[in-house]
């Protein structure tokens, strides 16, 4: 998670206006789904990989590893499509023998979906790896999404990392005390961590409120817009 986020902030395109990158990614996603053809899917996968590595300058090892992990998930996923099942019922209406196997058709369908989803994953990865999440929120704001939602999402983004740090600390503190030694302990530790996280989240929202008041808060979280680079002179 941190790795994806830190690439999003440090690649060659991170200061580029998010509209270009979101446009690229969404266009690729749309093409992938709308044309729905294995060749198109493959082309888009290759193109998005090329953009991520060539244009944004991300290390190809990392990009491929990420897509590979997603491909692995997808593979187990399309297995469900590839394996075909036929239910049959006897005269009394009970379940008879179940036929199970692979057919040329089902394998083809599985491959088809696999490639389409891989293209989708590559397109989404391009966006996630090149664009800081906060920029996407800015983009939504400029598209007239309601300010309240954008502010809530901004706070969520900001505090995911802080709470994640706490989660890691608490998990470690439980582990050194053998909190995950067996099922009972694990469940108890998980509940303890969950509870503490909740209390911490709540405490933070209170502390944040105080800090905002001290900075003459007027009720909205207005900040200066970021300055972006553009592809073309305007």
């Amino acid at each position: 998670m941190r790795q994806i986020d830190s690439y999003a902030h440090s690649n060659k395109l991170s200061r580029l206006h998010p509209a270009y990158k979101a446009g690229c990614s969404l266009l690729a996603l749309t093409l992938c789904l709308a044309l729905d053809h294995p060749t198109v899917s493959l082309l888009i996968t290759a193109l998005m990989l090329a953009l991520t590595v060539g244009w944004a300058g991300l290390p190809w090892r990392f990009v491929l590893r990420l897509l590979g992990a997603e491909g692995g998930f997808l593979l187990t996923g399309v297995l469900g499509i590839a394996i075909s099942v036929r239910l049959s019922f006897d005269q009394a209406g009970g379940l008879g023998p179940v036929q199970i196997g692979v057919t040329a058709e089902s394998v083809q369908q599985a491959l088809h979906v696999f490639l389409r989803a891989l293209g989708g994953a590559a397109a989404l990865n391009f966006l996630a790896l090149t664009t800081p999440a906060a920029d996407l929120l800015e983009l939504l704001r400029s598209l007239r999404a309601p300010a309240t939602l954008i502010e809530i999402m901004g706070l969520t983004y900001r505090f995911i990392f802080a709470l994640f740090d706490s989660l890691e600390r608490m998990t470690m503190a439980q582990e050194v005390r053998l909190g995950f030694a067996d099922w009972r302990n694990s469940l108890r530790s998980a509940a303890l961590i969950g509870t503490n996280l909740f209390v911490e989240a709540f405490r933070r929202s209170r502390a944040l409120e105080t800090a905002l008041q001290a900075r003459a808060w007027t009720g909205s979280l207005r900040v200066l817009p970021r300055e972006y680079e553009h592809l073309f002179r305007r």
Binding site: A133, A134, G154, L155, A162, R204, L208, A211, L221, V223
Partner: peptide, 11 residues
């Protein structure tokens, strides 16, 4: 950590 709530330092 209880005072910073924006995505970037500048903001």
């Amino acid at each position: 950590d209880d005072q910073l709530f924006s995505a970037s330092v500048y903001q």
